[in-house]
């Protein structure tokens, strides 16, 4: 378990897909730093590069050039094994479509990931599910859970490793307003003690209101970097 969230530092990060006439620059010279414990929202229209940014930070995509350091780890310099280890220790992912294993219960879905990091996986899975208020749904299979509950299981799955960085891609995209608010509240709570940074990608500008900081992306570039002086609680968001 990490003692504190690392600083995320991007230095001229570029990501290019294809080559020649089909070349697309998804990220262009992105440079910024995210301090430990920040709740950062990356906002931008479709195709602005926000998901690519998240994927590169999460080491499921490799940058074409530029530097990326997370807690002192030179992420682009990691080999395949190093990247797996990095994802295992340093980051937790939450996706729009939950991606739960349908044949495993809520607890087992979380426990599956807990097992790879060692310790009492069962207890940790229950603890993680308790933190997302799903103690009464431990033995339910995904098909028996609502969309919001499934997304909370996905959050618990990301949290069970206690990662210092939580990367969340459109976590409310498939949820209704009320459920979306609950999920956002959980994510916000997860970094409240300053030990974890949360990067949340969305195209929903309303969500930016709850962030500590908002990065605006357009055509692969960070076009604005706003600090939110008075974040509003997730429960008060409306869209």
């Amino acid at each position: 378990m990490n003692a504190s969230a690392p600083t995320i530092q991007l230095d001229g990060l570029t990501k290019t897909y294809g080559s020649g006439e089909t070349e697309v620059q998804a990220l262009k010279q992105a440079s910024f730093t995210i301090d430990a414990g920040q709740f950062v929202v990356m906002l931008g229209p479709s195709g602005s590069g926000k998901t690519t940014m998240l994927n590169v930070i999460g080491a499921i995509e490799e940058p074409t050039s530029g530097g990326l350091h997370v807690g002192g780890v030179d992420v682009p310099g990691l080999d395949q094994k190093g990247r797996t280890e990095y994802r295992r220790r340093e980051v937790g992912f939450i996706f729009q479509f939950y991606n739960l294993v349908p044949t495993l219960t809520a607890k087992e879905n979380v426990q599956l990931i807990a097992e790879i990091t060692g310790g009492d996986a069962g207890a940790r899975a229950e603890e993680a599910l308790a933190s997302v208020a799903l103690s009464d749904r431990l033995d339910h299979f995904p098909a028996q859970l609502s969309g919001g509950e499934q997304q909370r299981v996905a959050i618990a799955r990301a949290l069970v490793k206690d990662p210092p960085v939580l990367l969340s891609d459109e976590p409310t995209g498939a949820l209704d307003l009320e459920t979306g608010r609950q999920v956002l509240e959980l994510l916000h709570r997860s970094c409240r003690d300053g030990r974890r940074s949360v990067l949340l990608v969305t195209h929903n500008s309303a969500i930016a209101g709850m962030a500590d900081r908002v990065l605006h992306l357009r055509d692969g570039e960070v076009v604005a970097d706003d600090v939110v002086e008075q974040p509003v609680p997730a429960g008060e968001l409306d869209w």
Binding site: G58, I60, Q80, K81, T84, E85, Y86, R87, R88, R89, G92, F93, F95, F97, N99, L100, V101, P102, L112, I113, I116, T117, R157, A158, K161
Partner: peptide, 16 residues
């Protein structure tokens, strides 16, 4: 593929 990729993204090795 989606759940397997999610496991990979969560740090489960390809070998596992």
């Amino acid at each position: 593929s989606t759940e397997l990729a999610t496991m990979r993204a969560s740090g489960v090795t390809a070998g596992q």
